[in-house]
């Protein structure tokens, strides 16, 4: 095992993150605060409670999920796309390091970064609403698994992308709508029956539901189903990445 190689990639990626420390942290703090001002205070006061949880607190798990899903995907996709774009990927490919170690370096860094963002959003939320976490263990499990799976997903996008537009296309056009429609800011019980059925086909709905359960003990679907959803998504990403490295798809000719 080339631990030194993994460490080198990890430190390199974290250094890149800290170079833009201000925008990395300030951006989620500002956007979370805005969500609380708009949804929590202005709109939330009209909604009241959902499952005995104030609307301001209800949206916290969705907000954290929104941030970590988009940030994990973005961090990991840029992490691997940049060396491809600049050409420095030659160094990774010619180094005595295997695909698993490369993933550990890149995905490990993306997970760390998005976990930090998740914690920052949680702390910011705490400033606005009174928040209690009923199942902290499961909260951490969901948080980590989501960061890992979406970082793996981002890695796939970074390998697949041929230009910067493609790097941003999936997170913007697919991921963000799915997160918004997955019950980030509402319970699907508030939707008409037809939309409730459609929401069941949105994989992100299960993750948000499970994550919300870890906070308040109530969810749209059972916790088991949510865990199966996240595990399935993680396995799919691992399968695709294994295939990428086996075939050298868009990395090695």
């Amino acid at each position: 095992m080339n631990f030194s190689g993994i460490r080198a990639i990890y430190i390199y990626e974290m250094t890149r993150f800290f170079r833009t420390f201000f925008q990395s942290f300030i951006s989620p703090i500002v956007s979370t605060s805005l969500y609380f001002v708009v949804f929590g205070t202005a709109i939330g006061s009209k909604i009241g409670t959902i499952d005995d949880v104030s609307y301001g607190a209800f949206i916290v798990p969705g907000l954290i999920m929104l941030n970590i899903m988009t940030q994990s995907t973005s961090f990991a996709s840029f992490g691997i796309y940049l060396p491809k774009f600049v050409g420095t990927i030659f160094e990774i490919l010619s180094a005595p390091i295997n695909s698993f170690e490369i993933i550990l370096g890149y995905v490990g860094a993306a997970v760390t970064k998005s976990l930090m963002i998740g914690i920052v959003v949680l702390i910011t939320a705490h400033l606005f609403v009174d928040l209690k976490i009923l199942h902290p263990f499961f909260m951490i499990v969901f948080l980590v698994l989501t960061c890992v799976s979406f970082s793996l997903f981002g890695f796939i996008i970074g390998v697949w992308a041929k230009n910067f537009d493609q790097v941003q296309m999936i997170p913007l056009l697919v991921l963000t709508p799915l997160v918004f429609l997955g019950g980030s800011f509402y319970s699907i019980s508030m939707l008409p029956p037809i939309w409730q059925s459609i929401s069941m086909f949105n994989p992100i709905f299960y993750l948000i539901s499970g994550f919300r359960w870890s906070f308040f003990g109530t969810a749209d679907v059972g916790i088991g189903l949510s865990l199966i959803a996240i595990a399935t998504f993680t396995c799919c990403c691992i399968g695709v990445i294994t295939w990428i490295f086996k075939t050298g798809y868009r990395i090695k000719s």
Binding site: S4, G5, V86, G87, T88, F90
Partner: peptide, 29 residues
């Protein structure tokens, strides 16, 4: 093996010493 490619492919924002540390670490040293 060490390889010097034809194009000047480097991370422009990184410092000289750090980029060398990265390369050394990547090769398991």
């Amino acid at each position: 093996i060490g390889l010097v490619p034809q194009e000047l492919v480097l991370d422009s924002f990184e410092t000289v010493l750090n980029t060398l540390r990265f390369s050394r670490g990547l090769f398991g040293k």
